[in-house]
Design a protein around this nucleic acid. Structure first.
Length: 468
RNA sequence: GGCUGGGUGGCAGAGUGGCCAUGCUGCAGACUGCAACUCUGUUUACGCCGGUUCGAUUCCGACCCCAGCCUCCA
């Protein structure tokens, strides 16, 4: 099946043609680790997680690299504030990030490089850029000389004049051109630093990605992803560095940028302070619900994040699980979607895979999931029900949903002991048989007070935990 | 100001030159002792003004509004 991707640089949807069919290479910018990640970071991770799942169903061999920025002025400031070593801060934050991503159903990338592990590669890349006349040293700094790159601005369609007009950045006196940006800067003795030809210092933000891409994926890659807020200046600068280094401005074949998550009418961002951490949200909501909420909008659109979205997502997700639960009466116990981890595209439902291949249209893929679920609810034939369930779970695998066992989904966090619930249900069944409906309803009300709702099926009564 | 991307029914959110998106919610009905689950039906949609067309929410043009980027940010 063909995959189509909206390419930020070309500003249109393009059919995806890998550089090498036998090895697809994708790189995505991960977060800077100095605190708990917020749900906007989670959005980016979930989006590319689904995209990589799709790539893997179509292509045999995919290498997915997602970096961790572990050297940065904010990290230094935060470590100072907490009075802990920088390494301790970044290690703890990275662990916490893994916890949060895992709760959102995000699989690990093949490689998760850290900036601090690539200082040698960074220095050698800077040396080459200096040799080629694209960078220069000034007062212990090394700066990229923007006028040396004829393609600068081509990713985000910016003209150099516009950049100067709108410049809010402070122009350091040692810059040859106001647009020049830092590749290397000096470190004081109390800050983390590495020896370099330009003295003890640390790398700039943009060069680390250039170096890590080259180290782990080579001089040309298929896809580069990240949040749309990174397009400028981060990716533009990265493109300048890698493009000039290789003399190939198209070293990235497809640029993909996810839209921002909004809280109220504004982008959720640490600098605005309007963030919700994944950890906070997980206190009240299942990670799978948050994932559904993220996938309910198209990745390039901004997503309005609020309680209503989460509540709707929870109900919608529940209806998918309900279809699986209903199907168990026809087709037997259901596995979780993880069982489909190694499925290839031929086994996966077209209703879900086709929209995902079309620029990752997750809202339409979810519509496909609900269409399958509706058919499953109607099915009374064992074979048909099993086949539909197979499709639903296959689609669930692609989206990273339906990962829990049905029984676990409905009976998680029960406020009563299961034995007690079973006893009351049995008592109610007896009351019903004796036509003592007042007593039966009384038991049902008592269970509901404890957050337990019951459903009478033709095969007996089942229960589930509901939000009160 | 420049550069991106948007404005769709109560809410969220796809999509299409004329035919059902989908989910949630509301209402009505079936099922049920009553409910729940499920099923069926259903209510005011396509920012505004022109143009092209037999026909536009969908194509073209103008306008209004919103968000992102132009500083660190997924």
């Amino acid at each position: 099946m063909d995959i189509h991707i909206y390419d930020t640089k070309r500003r249109k949807k393009r059919r995806f043609e890998p550089l090498d069919e036998a090895h697809v290479k994708i790189y995505v910018c991960g977060p800077t680790v100095y605190d708990r990640i917020h749900i906007g970071n989670g959005l980016s991770a979930v989006v590319f997680d689904v995209f990589v799942r799709v790539l893997r169903t179509v292509f045999r061999n995919v290498t997915y690299v997602r970096n961790v920025t572990d050297i940065d002025d904010k990290i230094n400031a935060r470590a100072l504030e907490l009075q802990i070593p920088i390494e301790e801060l970044t290690r703890e934050c990275t662990d916490a990030m893994h916890e949060d991503f895992d709760a959102l159903g995000v699989l690990l990338p093949d490689v998760e490089p850290r900036a601090t592990g690539h200082i040698t590669e960074i220095i050698s890349m800077i040396l080459s850029l200096i040799q080629q006349g694209h960078a220069y040293e000034a007062e212990g700094h090394v700066l990229f000389y923007v006028p040396s790159d004829p393609n600068y601005g081509s990713l985000t369609n910016k003209s150099l004049e516009d950049l100067i007009d709108g410049a809010r950045v402070e122009v350091a006196p040692y810059k040859k051109d106001p647009k020049d940006f830092v590749l290397w800067k000096p470190s004081s003795s109390e800050l983390p630093g590495w020896d370099s030809p330009w003295g003890r210092g640390r790398p700039g933000w943009h060069i680390e990605c250039s170096a890590m891409i080259r180290e782990h994926l080579g001089n040309e890659i298929d896809i580069h992803g990240g949040g749309t807020d990174l397009a400028f200046p981060h990716h533009e600068n990265e493109m300048a560095q890698s493009g000039c280094f290789n003399d190939n401005p198209d070293y990235v074949n497809y640029w993909m940028h996810n839209g921002m998550l909004n809280l109220g009418s504004q982008k959720m961002s640490k600098s605005l302070g309007n963030i919700q951490t994944v950890q906070e949200l997980l206190r009240d909501h299942a990670g799978e619900t948050l994932r559904y909420a993220i996938l309910s909008g198209h990745y390039r659109q901004s997503l309005k994040w609020d309680d209503e979205l989460i509540a709707q997502s929870d109900r919608s997700l529940t209806s998918l699980y309900q279809a699986l639960r209903n199907a168990e009466r026809v087709a037997g116990e259901s596995p979780a979607s993880d069982a489909y981890a190694h499925a290839k595209s031929v086994d996966l439902p077209d209703e879900v895979l086709a929209p995902l291949c079309d620029d990752l249209n997750t809202p339409r893929a979810l519509a496909g999931m609900h269409e399958i679920a509706s058919k499953l609810n109607l099915s009374t034939d064992v074979k048909e029900a099993q086949s539909l369930r197979h499709k639903l779970l296959g689609g669930g695998w692609l989206l990273g949903l339906l990962t829990r066992r049905v029984a676990d989904f409905f009976t998680r966090d029960a406020s009563m002991a299961e034995a007690e619930i079973d006893r009351l249900i049995e008592e109610r069944t007896e009351a019903k048989e004796a036509k003592q409906y007042d007593r039966a309803d009384e038991i049902r009300a008592e269970l509901l007070t404890n957050g337990i709702a019951i459903e009478d099926t033709r095969d007996g009564t089942v229960w589930k935990v509901v939000k009160r």
